[in-house]
Amino acid sequence: MKNLSQLELTSRWPKNHPMFDTRINMYPIGNLKNLWCLRIDCDYGVKDEFLINLCNNAKKLALLTVTGTNISDIELETLNISNCINVTDKSVLLYYLIGTYKRPIVSLINGLAMGASMGIFFHGKYSVATETTQCGVPEVLVGLIPGFGASHLFQKKLEGQLGLYLSLTGRSLKGVDVKLTGIATHYVSSSKLPEVTKALLAPGDGDVKKILDEYDEQDPHAESCLSKYTKQLDECFSGDSVEDIIQRLKNDDSEWSQGVLKLLDKISPTSLKVAKKAFEKEKELGLVESLKMEFIVAQNMMIKKSDFEEGVRAQIIDKDYKPSWNPPTLDQVTDKYVENCRN
């Protein structure tokens, strides 16, 4: 397992900084010779020895069960600035480990997988959605930008401007749409997950993709909830700036574009501009560089009296859903500030 210096992460990381912290709980299930099976509960703790065992013992694949919970279920006292930064900088190495793991990782997404927990499965080779799956990158709703190398992965894995659309609107996708949009690789009814798990865990060197394909329930003629808007989405979100995107949506003047404008109107102007710039920059970057950049941006945005603090107040603590963004308009967010977020 690589350490911080080998990854050449930003100097903001202290040399004695532990790789992981108590936010993601990974523990072995069963005593299997050919597989190290892990369960990830996205709000709890991780232990170094389990990740070391993952590297040393997984012979065929690693199976992850992603069952994130609603953020309202998390104790509110943990949602302070220092704790949020602590979670962010510890998560970077986990994403790197999953994203560069040599054996196939299969994620069974049974429930919520929002933000950071989406990063856990999206870095792996295979992911299985069910009718209970809901995933997305809602960070802009609380004054941040998507993390986990999202902008890099979206441009690598998703078609057209879908990734930018999801990043700027904070919209989530559910059920089979997670597969149809390309976020998940397979779709299976949740009632069949035990069968899928048993087949994957069976002794021998079975073809992982073939097993998943056999259980995949997707109708080859089905279309996602966004498919009929693909042309409009790609045209509008190809704008050179957030202002250009908004103008294109206004020019489109359809029921769909008006709905998107209402979504964007709720988002922090600062988050919109910083997220758009990150998307542009990460097109040129590899995974490690993208993770480093997003970590620095998160640190610079998670400060007192920031849109992040206000977003958490409005969306999670007070739940009045009426954030007072500062600055309140796009034209007041300077290019200098956007650039400084990356430094």
Score class of each variant (00 low, 15 high):
G30C: 11
D48T: 15
I317F: 01
L249W: 02
K228R: 13
I29V: 15
Q299T: 06
K322H: 07
T270A: 13
L261Q: 07
D73P: 01
Y96T: 09
A62Q: 02
Y27L: 14
E195L: 14
C135P: 00
T329N: 04
C37M: 12
T185H: 02
I267D: 08
V312L: 06
V87Y: 08
A116V: 06
N53E: 13
A62W: 01
M114T: 12
H152K: 08
I81F: 00
K125Q: 09
K228Q: 15
P14G: 06
S257V: 09
Y215A: 05
A314S: 15
E310F: 03
C37Y: 11
E294S: 07
L51S: 08
V274L: 04
L272C: 12
N83I: 03
D73H: 08
V178E: 01
G30L: 10
I24A: 13
Q218H: 00
K292W: 02
F148C: 04
C55H: 12
K250T: 10
G119D: 00
V137R: 02
K102R: 14
E309H: 01
T100F: 01
L94S: 07
I183F: 09
A58I: 05
C135E: 00
V333R: 06
K283G: 14
A116K: 10
E235K: 11
V128R: 03
D207L: 05
A129S: 15
D318K: 07
E195P: 07
V178I: 12
L153T: 00
D43Q: 13
S172C: 05
S172H: 04
P203V: 10
F295V: 03
G259N: 15
L287C: 03
D234C: 05
M114W: 12
R23F: 15
Q155P: 02
E159S: 08
C42D: 13
L226Y: 12
P328K: 11
T185L: 02
D89S: 08
K231I: 12
L180A: 00
G182E: 01
S5P: 00
L108A: 11
S82D: 15
A298W: 06
P194L: 10
N86E: 13
A278H: 04
